[in-house]
Structures are given as structure tokens and as C-alpha cells.
Amino acid sequence: MSIETNTGEILKNSGTFLASLIILPPLTIGILRKTKARFQNRIGAPLLQPFFDLAKLLQKNETVSEHASWLFRIAPCINLTVMLLLSLLIPWTSLTAIPHGIISADLFLIIYLLGLARFFTVLAALDTGSAFGGFGASREVTLALLVEPAVMLCLACLGVRAGTSDLSQVFSYEATRLTGQYGLWFLAGCGLFLSSLVELSRMPADDPTTHLELTMVHEAMILENSAANLALAEIGHYIKVALLLGLSWQCFMHCLPSHLLSDWTARAIASTGGIISLALFIALIESLAVKLRWTKLPEFIAYAVAMAIFSYLIALSV
């Protein structure tokens, strides 16, 4: 496909994309926290609290440990940059910011960019030399090791069926060889959702609201960050939440009857609504379930891997 698509459409696409990239990630977190609060019979912070928090953090003075090197300060920037890059590559909403064919959103590139962001977060956590940072880093890496096969296998199955490793083509709404493969889409979506619960350090893997440093995973790693540095790390994490939830939602969206999603507006509404409803679902899980014990976690991740194996079988057989 070439760039001859008219300028108006590109403007509309990019404008909506930019707006959703700025608004959606913090809003998703806000909705998640609000729902959890309502479940616990609290009023809860306003929906836009993540925005206020970020604004507050950006105004504060930063404290950096005297043992920390330049790496500690630069890591959140790298993290955020990678996340912004990923937001252009991952098909997390129904619209494409970049017209097809200009950049190839290769699935291996995406997985390793996620790995790169994690690598720098882990390095920064180790850099300050705090014990909790080390804890968190070691756990994060262990979880990533277990989850990565599931994510890769899910995406690769879709790619194999579609005959391309370019995710923007795999997830495009034009007729491909994946059209109508509801079982494959659904299983891949389940696998991606379960793995993103672990990757995003949500409840069965990690309690994001815990006050006990010994049990933290993600929070322990950014314990030393403050002010603008913390704000950048938080924004990066918010975007990651929206990206991964959006990716698994896109899988579920392909299970819906295609005539419902024939026009641009319907898809845009469905994508946004989907991310928010997945956030609501996570809030439900976090209110009803408890954090799993660390030794029980591989059992949970095994479910994600099993989903990936199922979709692999379907991709082979169909």
C-alpha cells in the first residue's frame, strides 16, 4: 500500500491516535483504581487523579541517591521512549497512526523492544544498590522469562496464519486469512491477557497497592525514583498498561461479527470501550482474588502458556 491515501484521513487518524495516546493510559489507571475503591466501599480518588499525580510529581525537586550513576537518571527516559515507539508499532487501537507499509511492525521487534524497556528498568533498579530494588529486579526478570514464550507463541501463531510477521497487517481489518478464525483469535487473546496481567504486575502476580516492600515486584524497582524521574517511569508504565490491554482486546475484537465493525467510528469506540472494560475486569479480579504466593506463580503463567499451545495447535491444523 502506498501513501496515496488522502491527507484528511491521515490527519484524522493521527489526531485521534495522539489524543487517545495522551488521554487513555492515565484514564485507564484512574478507572481501575476508582472501580477497586468502589468495590471496597470507598469513594476513591477522582478518575483524573493519575493526571494530577503526574503534574504534581513533575513540579517536585528530585532526590537522587549518591550511589546512583547516570544510568539511574536516564533509564526512565529510555523506558518512556521505547514505550512511545511501541505505541506506534503495536496495533493496540483499531486505527493506524502510520499508513501501512512505511514501517514494518515486526512481532519480534515488538517483543524485544518490550524486553529492552524491561532491561533498562532492571538496570536502574540495581544501580542504586538498594536491597529492595535488587529484589524487584530479580523477580521481574524471572517473571519475564516465564511469560515471554507465551506472548511470543500467541503472536507468532497469528502471524503464521496470516502469513506475515508484520503485526499491523495481522491485526488489520481487511480480509486476510485470519478472518473468521474466531477460535484462534479468542485463545490468543486469552493468552495475551493472562500474560499481560503478569507483565503489568497486576494482581495474581503482584499487588500494585501493597505497602510491604518484600512482596513488591514493579513497585520495588521504582522505589528510589522521585519527582520527574518517577513521573516518567509512571507514564511509561501507564502506556504499557494501555498497550498490552489494547493488544489483547484487539484479539477479542476480531472475534466479534465483522459487520458490527465495518466503519471507522464503530471500531474506534469498540477499541476504547474494550480497553476500559478490560481495566474494569482487572479491577474485578483484584477485588475478588488475592495475590498468588510466589511459588504458585508458575502455575498461573502455565495457563497463559497452555492458551498459547492451544492456539499453536489451531494454527497448525486449520
Partner: peptide
Amino acid sequence: PLSMHLGAIMLG
């Protein structure tokens, strides 16, 4: 977990 994966293979 292993027996579940074995089960998935048995599906194949």
C-alpha cells in the same frame, strides 16, 4: 503445569 501442557499436546 506440566500435565496441563501434556494435555494440550494430547489434544493435538
